[in-house]
Design a protein around this nucleic acid. Structure first.
Length: 275
DNA sequence: CATTGGACCTGACCGC
DNA sequence: TGCGGTCAGGTCCAAT
């Protein structure tokens, strides 16, 4: 479910709510959630740890503690819920209780989400294979071009695989490609300099707007207080199949690109024709 | 190495 | 109401 704007929204809330708190209890409801040395070691490492800082890299939510770094990936349906009761509810996979304030619940219907402990070296190794952070100044058209160069795969799956740029998922990929007027099936390496520049700008725009609106909510996403995001009201193509393009009025099309549902305008986003 | 297709899970929704 | 099929905001892994 969550892409960069949704994870960033949650990170900001956690930063205000749990930094400085000490973890007093760790309840692992579903051991499948935990990667690494096992649920036992995970609980032992976190019990008594104090949350020092929050961070995010792409879609990874990172909680630094004085006993190691906790990494959470929400995948498709993961949610973080801050609740005053530590009581386990349907689909709760993990609960962290603190010395004061609400408990952190990792809730995940489909059980794809993961949590694990790591250290600075582990985090660096993980992060090294990811592309630049799109909302940092290090993200430039030149960096994006370098990540796309020589690639025959369609631009849409190239955006989703996290190597050219981190944090983009199915919603914001469609939105950015519409904004940059690029057909999602265009071979990534065939984009000219101007198109890559437009795409880099579009990625920044759609992600920044997504964060400003507290993320996009369809069915499963909600923030840590259980509230919906608002960005679904600003979407230009995603899940607007058959509705008029905001630029030209033609009906938005739904196709499959890279095995993912894809939305685009047949007039504004020209089908690529190999020269 | 790059790319593709299936696997991983559960629930909502739709048509019959 | 029940049943079967499709779809879902992500990633990993094996096969090619």
């Amino acid at each position: 479910m969550p892409e960069l704007p949704e994870v960033e929204t949650i990170r900001r809330e956690l930063d205000a709510a749990i930094v400085g708190r000490r973890i007093t209890a760790v309840t692992i409801v579903d051991a499948k959630l935990i990667l690494g040395k096992g649920a036992q070691a995970f609980g032992a490492a976190l019990r008594g740890a104090r949350v020092a800082d929050t961070d995010r890299r792409g879609k990874l939510l990172i909680l630094a503690t004085d006993r190691g770094t906790l990494v959470l990936h929400l995948m498709m349906t993961g949610r973080i819920s801050l609740r005053h009761s530590p009581a386990v509810r349907p689909h709760t996979r993990l609960v962290l209780e603190f010395d004061q304030g609400p408990s952190l619940h990792f809730v995940d219907t489909r059980r794809f989400g993961r949590a694990w402990m790591t250290d600075q070296a582990g985090l660096a190794a993980l992060t090294r294979r990811m592309g630049p952070e799109p909302l940092d100044s290090a993200f430039t058209a030149a960096r994006l071009a370098a990540g796309l160069r020589g690639r025959a795969v369609a631009i849409k799956p190239a955006l989703l695989d996290q190597r050219a740029v981190a944090g983009v998922g199915n919603i914001y990929a469609d939105e950015a490609l519409w904004l940059a007027r690029i057909h999602p099936a265009t071979p990534a390496g065939s984009l000219g300099r101007h198109k890559v520049e437009a795409l880099a700008r579009a990625i920044v725009t759609v992600l920044r707007d997504g964060v400003a609106h507290g993320g996009t909510s369809f069915r499963t996403y909600e923030n840590s207080r259980g509230e919906q995001g608002a960005h679904q009201r600003w979407l230009k193509v995603f899940r607007r199949t058959g509705e008029p393009c905001f630029r030209c009025g033609r009906p938005i099309e739904r196709t499959i690109v890279g095995q993912r549902s894809t939305h685009s305008c047949p007039r504004c986003q020209r089908v690529y024709v190999r020269p």
